[in-house]
Design a protein around this nucleic acid. Structure first.
Lengths: 102, 102
DNA sequence: CCTACATATCGATGTATCCCGATATGGCGA
DNA sequence: TCGCCATATCGGGATACATCGATATGTAGG
């Protein structure tokens, strides 16, 4: 799957889970929700930060993988950490297409 | 659940299935897709019409119930038939809220 | 190297969803 | 009332998803 490909069904499924929706919404305003992070937020938000949703490390990792498979987020490895960002072009294109299709 | 209530998660789940998405899209232009129907399309589209998606009667009925639980469609019983229509206010409100939230 | 830490993957378990055929419900007409 | 038709509901089997703890991978530092 290309990095800006839009699979509507995959995206809808990815959004259909509160934890994943929370993660995407938190990523809208990283400075608001992750001010305590050591690395600058320009790189994105560190995976471990999302365990605040109350789920285990492995479950959170799996949710992040789901979001990434749907191309809703991108990730960058820096040292031992992985930083996540919203994939705004895909999100915008998805919303546009859904508003047209639906 | 009130008739114009919006449960975002329920709606996303409902949209995450190709058959249900097809049904909603077919209902956008009933005259285009259901011109063969005997009853006037003002009442909506007869449940049986949706079996053209290739699924069994019971499965189609269950998908229609899912759409209705999410308030994406409304139904009206006329005689022995049940006619379905899109619930445009809910669909529009859902799209608006999703675009804001997401 | 060896250890510590962050993240990903594995294996197992419970739950939800999908789909069907069979049956129930409910209206219509003879 | 009886049978017919449209729709809904039931029961079961198959597949997918959610979640966890345990383990593997991979990076950094001593």
């Amino acid at each position: 799957m290309a990095p800006h490909d839009i699979d509507q069904e995959d995206i809808l499924k990815a959004l259909s889970h509160p934890a994943r929706m929370d993660i995407l919404q938190w990523l809208k305003e990283p400075e608001k929700h992750f001010s305590g992070q050591h690395m600058p937020l320009e790189h994105g938000v560190c995976a471990g930060q999302f365990e605040r949703c109350g789920l285990s490390q492995s479950t959170v990792s799996s949710h992040l993988a789901t979001l990434q498979r749907a191309n809703l987020v991108t990730s960058e490895r820096i040292g031992q950490w992985v930083f996540y960002k919203r994939n705004e072009p895909v999100i915008a294109a998805f919303l546009k297409r859904l508003a047209e299709d639906l």
